[in-house]
Design a protein around this nucleic acid. Structure first.
Length: 271
DNA sequence: CCCGATTCCTGTAGGC
DNA sequence: TGCCTACAGGAATCGG
């Protein structure tokens, strides 16, 4: 569920709390995430000042004096800002406690998230090294997607969810952007025209930017750092709307599994 | 290289 | 009511 808008919403929510603050201590209650939390991370972080809070793809990067935290929310993770002694809820796995008395608290029922530590150039970390361009930056355009798609037979929706092609687009926003661009999700990537890719890129940018302004999409687990849901769910045109009437015509929204993922589309608006 | 299938884990909805 | 199964986001990894 956390895709680019949810991760960016989280980053914005924690940035002000973290910047220039020193880490009092780190508490790890559950190390068994997607990858184990490094053994000595508690000692590594103690007393360090936070220099920056950035995002790359769906990763939050917290730069400290001697290294950089790599934080991923996985499928069900969320981060909240709490007082250091706030009561614990189920699946509150990690607290990053600051000198201010505030803490960054990570909750992740499915434990597909991760918290890693890099002391080299973080962009060269194996998880980040092969990532594609950021969708909201200028380097991501219709020409780029068109070029990358030549010879690719896989479904267009899988293609744009591939983090090596472009980052940040997950299952929800892929369906939404394809609806906006009027292209069927199961279409082979190589069969999509340059003009269609230009429309698709425009809609990917638009849907992601709009979702950020709404604080992301909450289906179930995701929440903003203050505990409020993301409000973009109210703007979804096709995702989760199988059997309902299309917002743009009188057809019924369909659901189809593509690449082991539920995909939603309008059979009339999308060709 | 490319791509589909599998896998990690837990909560919950739906069927009987 | 209770039990069981299917399914849900992300993405690394494996194997064809």
């Amino acid at each position: 569920m956390p895709e680019l808008p949810e991760v960016e919403t989280t980053r914005r929510g924690i940035e002000g709390v973290l910047l220039q603050q020193r880490v009092l201590y780190l508490i790890v209650r559950e190390r068994r995430l997607r990858w184990p939390v490094p053994d000595n991370l508690e000692q590594q972080l103690e007393g360090q000042k936070v220099l920056s809070v950035r995002r790359r793809a769906k990763y939050i990067l917290i730069e400290l004096e001697t290294g950089c935290l790599i934080w991923h929310l996985g499928m069900s993770g969320s981060i909240s800002v709490v007082d250091e002694n706030a009561p614990l809820k189920k699946h509150d796995h990690i607290d990053l406690v600051l000198q201010s008395g505030k803490a960054i608290r990570f909750n992740d029922p499915r434990r597909f998230g991760c918290l890693l530590w890099s002391q080299e150039d973080v962009q060269k970390h194996t998880l980040l090294a092969t990532l594609g361009p950021e969708p909201l930056e200028d380097g991501f355009d219709g020409d780029y997607l068109y070029r990358k798609s030549r010879g690719r037979k896989r479904a267009l929706k899988n293609f744009i969810m591939d983090q090596k092609i472009v980052v940040g687009v997950g299952n929800i926003y892929a369906s939404e952007a394809l609806f906006g661009a009027g292209i069927l999700p199961g279409q082979a990537a190589a069969r999509v025209s340059k003009r269609q890719y230009q429309a698709l890129v425009e809609h990917i940018k638009r849907v992601l930017a709009e979702a950020i302004t709404q604080g992301g999409t909450t289906l179930k687990d995701f929440q903003q750092v203050d505990g409020k849901p993301g409000y973009f769910k109210q703007r979804l045109m096709v995702y989760g709307r199988a059997g309902q009437v299309c917002e743009q015509c009188d057809a019924t929204i369909l659901k189809k599994v593509i690449g082991q993922r539920a995909s939603f589309y309008c059979p009339v608006c999308q060709q």
